[in-house]
Design a binder for these strands. Structure first.
Lengths: 187, 187
DNA sequence: ACTTTACAAGAACATATATTCTAGTATACA
DNA sequence: TGTATACTAGAATATATGTTCTTGTAAAGT
């Protein structure tokens, strides 16, 4: 092998997330300025701007879905509530990845020109999460819409009320969990 | 007075909203192509790109807040529920403005370089809405956080699950109303 | 120690997009 | 009917930003 990277991927992705959070878009020169990694290096490491954005997105998606699915398949009686609050917890535990996932828009970070490999991996991850949710819905006799609202939409809406400016306070967890239960009840 | 516009503002704002919804950003040439209004006209009418985006945003904000505040101050016992479902209803009734308000990001449409007049008007509108919510919270002895979650965050999260690709189905209204009540109950 | 190879650097280039500019057009009102 | 005025038009220009290219560097394995 040759020389190793002096700056870790995580630091680059973090810079991408910060830019997304504060301006909604990523200019390579800003990433260069924040990380110290040169343009040439970025292209060498990620192939293109789209490659960089797509990788950062994939990184965040995988990190979140691991937690989400673990909660959903925990087998505990409050698995739904746990999955629902996985979102606010993720925002507190991994602010860098959360900035990207919550503040970024998928269409921008994962566009048609993104590397096929990454697109496939993201699609695979999404399919796994969707399957896990479908199974949970079936096992608990909840309509899939109620699941999506209670486990994804409401938690997302809640944390977006705080990010990127403020931290997500712990007390939102109770609200999010209650909103999930209300969705189950309605159905 | 001189000549009148051949193409109405609403049509231009609609094009802006569609572009925001499908790509997340607005390229003037696309607006020109969609509306038939030339670049020169756009600059004459709105002063700058930021002026156009800011005006479109203000238009959508005012349209929504009118409904929201009317529901909140209706004096009905279910004023809260009505205000909560104002969001999904707005998406169904005014899809063009909803695309802008729900899919657009405020930081992009209303930036530092936006015309001061517009910024002031938006700030004023937001202050009025905030005051209305604060009053509602006080009158009903609900924490302001619960209000913001139940009336804004949860409804927003719910409609974003569908927009911009699908229509917001009527059944989400029941979920959104229930989520609002759950927020009241938690507090 | 040597060689290979992945990484680093940044100037040069290409492209996309915003903005300006000059000229022309249609409508309201006297 | 004349004239002022808001609007229309699009080519020309400026700017911002992505991409490529060449040269150089340091670490891993032999």
């Amino acid at each position: 092998m040759g020389r190793m990277s002096t700056v870790d991927d995580a630091i680059v992705f973090d810079a991408v997330g910060r830019k997304i959070a504060e301006s909604g878009s990523v200019v390579l020169q800003d990433v260069v300025a924040e990380t110290g990694v040169s343009v040439g290096s970025l292209y060498h490491r990620y192939g293109s701007r789209e490659g960089l954005l797509a990788r950062a997105w994939l990184d965040a998606v995988l990190a979140f879905q691991t937690r989400f699915i673990a909660a959903l398949e925990s087998g505990e009686p409050d698995a739904g509530e746990r999955a629902a609050v996985a979102t606010p917890q993720f925002c507190r535990d991994e602010p860098a990845r959360a900035r990207l996932l919550i503040c970024g828009r998928k269409e921008e970070l994962l566009s048609a020109g993104s590397p096929l490999v990454i697109k496939i991996e993201v699609a695979r991850a999404n399919k796994i999460a969707a399957k896990s949710m479908a199974q949970f819905a079936k096992a608990n006799r909840i309509p899939i819409d109620a699941c999506r609202l209670g486990l994804v939409a409401f938690p997302l809406g809640a944390v977006r009320m705080y990010l990127p400016d403020q931290k997500v306070p712990k007390k939102v967890d109770a609200y999010v969990a209650a909103a999930f239960r209300s969705a189950v009840r309605v159905s």
